[in-house]
Design a binder for these strands. Structure first.
Lengths: 165, 165
DNA sequence: GTCGATTGTCTTGACGTCGAGATAGGTTGG
DNA sequence: CCAACCTATCTCGACGTCAAGACAATCGAC
């Protein structure tokens, strides 16, 4: 089946036949798909009264394992936002009672953000919801195709994730 | 090579061994890669004094071919933003002299947005810059792998692009 | 024709993010 | 022990986006 990127590439080949636009076949699809996923996720999380950014922070803490705490700095690197943004997010989550700020006992500059019991429950519930939705989206592909796709994407993301950029 | 999503998935398998988190292998990589691409593009466009959103609008018009004009509504569907956002973008581009607003002769509710000569030049220059950067990112993959990846992604994007969602 | 629904664009207010800089604690070498 | 530098977090102002709704023009059914 044709998608928007097919149309986009065809248009470029017509308007700029001198250029090789093959890279767009991959990377424009990545960007557009991500955009669609954002919207879909927003809907899925709304059922659990969570915003996508809240999910990102709560699940980062949940994945850390007991006692479910990380520093703001560790949360930054996992969620790819700036420090000002993270301060703001922690404030709002704390106000909702989903996380709490604790002083870092080993570094008085530092802070530890810890998931509350309610925060943990919300993280678990919304993860289950997200996985159900994503499974539906991925039903387009066979298991083998999903594996291939994951492997190819890994090759592209690895340089970004390993060389700090 | 390992990436952040490998670490993320491993963490979930440790914390929630009861859940099947395979969907994340694909879709979390898509979202994270898109995030990295946004940052990289921002840098590439900065050399041409353009923001990513400006590029999106200018190139949509450029792709339309002479006389390089589209309605705001057509621009909406191509760029996946809301109408309020598009109004704002057109305002700013018009102020910079890269586009102009014309009344639609066939529908008095409507407007046509047309690229100026300078807008067209800037679109062409920045497209060349973007393609160079994207080629570098995709050098991780062989030509055949890029083709596979594009095809797999198309299967996921097609439903979003064809069933209005 | 005319009324109601629809379409296309713009307006508005709230919100989240960014980037730069401030603050304070920590670290290292002399 | 001090000075210079580094690190962790927070503060602040500017900005872009969104969602909802306003408004005007158009279309369709009767």
């Amino acid at each position: 089946m044709e998608d928007e990127v097919d149309r986009l590439v065809a248009a470029w080949r017509r308007e700029r036949p001198d250029l090789d636009v093959e890279p767009l076949e991959v990377l424009s699809r990545v960007s557009r798909l991500a955009r669609h996923l954002d919207r879909a996720r927003r809907l899925a999380f709304a059922e659990h009264q969570l915003e996508p950014w809240e999910f990102d922070v709560l699940t980062a803490l949940r994945r850390a394992g007991t006692p479910y705490q990380l520093s703001p700095g560790q949360l930054l690197t996992q969620t790819l936002v700036t420090s000002g943004t993270m301060t703001n997010r922690i404030d709002r989550l704390a106000k909702k009672g989903l996380v709490e700020r604790l002083p870092d006992p080993s570094d008085r500059r530092g802070v530890l953000v810890r998931l509350t019991d309610e925060g943990r429950d919300r993280a678990d519930q919304s993860l289950a919801g997200l996985l159900a939705q994503e499974r539906a989206i991925l039903a387009e592909l066979s298991r083998a195709q999903r594996g291939e796709l994951a492997a190819l994407l890994r090759q592209l993301t690895a340089p970004f994730d390993n060389i700090p950029g």
